Amino acid sequence: MSDSIHPLRTFLQLHLASDDAAVSNLPFVIQFLSPQHPSTWITRINSLVHSKDPGARWAGLSIACQIALFSRALMLENARNWVGAALPLFSRKEEPVPTLKAATRLLIYIFSVAIDTPEFQRQIASPNVPKFSLALTIVAENHPSRELRLLAIDSLSALVPLYATLHKTLHGRLSALCLRQIGVSAGYPTDSSLTRAASCLYSVLPATGGKVGSTTLWRKSVDEVMVLSWASLHALRTTFRPLRQHQSLQEDPMVSIPLNVDRLRGAVFALSGLLEYGQPRPGPFNCHWGLWLTSAKHY
């Protein structure tokens, strides 16, 4: 279909004529996207993606993600351009949250769908996935937006199994991130969605060890979660007993009980994910207490 008669040409002339128009008309434009796109349309989307205006970048990245969903060929053709525009956004401190969300969704889709293309893997994925994962890790650790942190953790959970060897250097940092979220800290509100997301990420981290090392990492992860589980359970079971010497006199049951219940809940989520882990792992696992903890999800 030629550009002169393509229906998207009308949208290009009227709804995407300026950056402000693109932002205002984005919800309407996305409804009418189709698998076929004229060359002038792609050119305009690329100009939006590289725009200096954050709103226009958000619109361009959102439309680019929809185009990638419709056409694998167009995605592969423009992947280098889109990745090159989206990845640097994470290093800008003042970048708006909606733009970072759109960039995350676009990048995670590109890196996930094109994994079976060797040329794409060599030229685009291998150099950029570690940078993207590091950026997501920083977001998950420090960003004030809860929704963006949750999206970053979920994205890492999808990327790690696909590019396990590329995440080997990030294993320690990601593991610490997950354990902090699962373990909960006194004085911080518990977020069950973030805890579940961190547990899911924690359960796939053993894959970074490869065929040989994943077994050791899986066992180490289970041991760490069981230590947290036992400590939380012990604190709850001894709450109403006479004070023991090893217990702190400053420990307030009004704080320690909810705190340890939250820690136990997080450990349950993590242990459930590890027991469902799909990679080869050691033989029989004595999971009597693990199964008991798994059944305690109502806490």
Rank of each mutant, 00 (worst) to 15 (best):
M1V: 13
S2H: 00
S2D: 12
H6Y: 03
H6D: 01
H6M: 03
P7A: 03
F11E: 08
Q13Y: 08
H15L: 11
N25R: 01
L26F: 02
F28L: 11
P35T: 02
H37A: 13
T40R: 11
I42A: 05
T43P: 00
S47W: 03
S51A: 11
S51I: 05
K52Y: 05
D53S: 01
P54E: 00
P54M: 01
G55T: 00
A56D: 10
R57E: 03
A59E: 14
A59V: 04
L61Y: 12
S62N: 06
S62H: 07
A64S: 11
Q66Y: 12
F70D: 10
R72A: 12
M75P: 08
M75D: 14
R80G: 04
R80C: 08
R80H: 01
W82A: 04
W82V: 02
V83K: 01
A85V: 10
P88S: 15
L89C: 05
F90R: 00
S91R: 14
K93G: 08
P96Y: 05
P96T: 07
P96H: 08
V97I: 02
P98E: 11
L100D: 07
K101A: 09
L106M: 01
I108H: 11
D116S: 14
P118W: 09
E119T: 11
Q121P: 04
Q123V: 08
S126A: 14
P130A: 12
F132Q: 04
T137D: 13
A140S: 15
H143W: 08
H143M: 06
R146G: 08
R146P: 07
E147I: 06
E147M: 06
E147S: 08
A152G: 13
P161K: 06
P161T: 01
T165I: 04
T169K: 14
H171C: 09
R173Q: 10
L174A: 06
S175P: 04
L177T: 10
I182G: 13
I182P: 13
V184P: 01
D191C: 12
S193P: 00
A198C: 10
A198L: 00
S199Y: 00
P206T: 07
G209D: 15
V212E: 15
S214M: 15
T215G: 02
T216S: 13
E224W: 00
E224H: 05
T238Q: 14
T239A: 12
T239Q: 14
R241A: 06
R244I: 09
H246I: 05
L249E: 13
P253W: 05
V261D: 02
R263S: 07
V268I: 00
F269Q: 09
L271D: 06
L274F: 06
L274P: 15
L274K: 10
L275N: 04
L275D: 08
L275M: 14
G283I: 05
H288Y: 12
H288K: 14
W289R: 02
S295P: 01
S295R: 07
A296Y: 01
K297G: 08
Y299E: 12
